[in-house]
Amino acid sequence: MGIEAGLGRLDEIVVDCADPAGLVRFWALLVGGSPVDRTPQWSYVDPPGGQPRLAFQAVPEGKETKKNRLHLDVEVGDIDAVRDELLRRGAQVVGEVQTDDQGAFQVMHDPEGNEFCLVR
């Protein structure tokens, strides 16, 4: 049985933020690609390997809730090493590394508090 095509294709993921130029550099370090500042209100990175574009758009209001309704899982080879580098770049750790029979993950926040997971 083949995979059925959807009505659309995931083109990009847009993150509301206060500092698009700063946040895009954090995410470019994590997922690869070169940061692009289109305007002071809009930056993006095109990760390699056909991954969707990550875009960052300036909004006037701050993040109002602690928990995201949506987060990104980023596969890495070494959770501890990547976590330590991201901490130097302004990320925050949320809890301990969790391990189960599917692998391991570390919940984190980017410099503006957006939740994501490093997974292995």
Rank of each mutant, 00 (worst) to 15 (best):
W42N: 08
E4F: 10
E12W: 02
R9Y: 09
E4G: 07
L72W: 03
I79S: 02
G95C: 02
L72D: 04
G32V: 13
L86C: 14
A58S: 13
L118C: 04
E12C: 11
L72P: 03
R53V: 12
G50R: 10
I79D: 03
L54W: 04
G113R: 07
Q92L: 13
G32M: 11
R9A: 11
I3Q: 12
G2F: 10
D84P: 02
T65A: 14
G6A: 15
P20K: 06
V15S: 03
K63E: 10
E112P: 04
P111D: 05
F105S: 06
A21I: 03
Q57K: 13
A104G: 11
G22P: 01
V74F: 00
H71A: 02
F26V: 06
E61Y: 09
A55K: 02
D101G: 00
R9V: 13
G8K: 06
H109K: 14
V14Q: 12
D73S: 08
D73R: 02
G50V: 05
S34H: 06
G62H: 12
N114K: 05
V45D: 00
V93K: 14
E12S: 12
C17T: 13
Y44W: 12
E115Q: 15
V45W: 00
G6D: 07
K63F: 09
R89E: 12
G49T: 08
E112D: 12
H109W: 01
Q57Y: 13
E64C: 09
A28I: 11
Q41D: 15
V107D: 05
D19W: 00
R25L: 09
D73G: 11
A18L: 14
R88W: 02
M108P: 05
R69T: 14
G8Y: 12
L30H: 04
F26L: 10
G22K: 05
G77P: 00
W27G: 03
D110W: 01
M108I: 04
E85R: 15
Q106R: 11
P20A: 12
A58D: 00
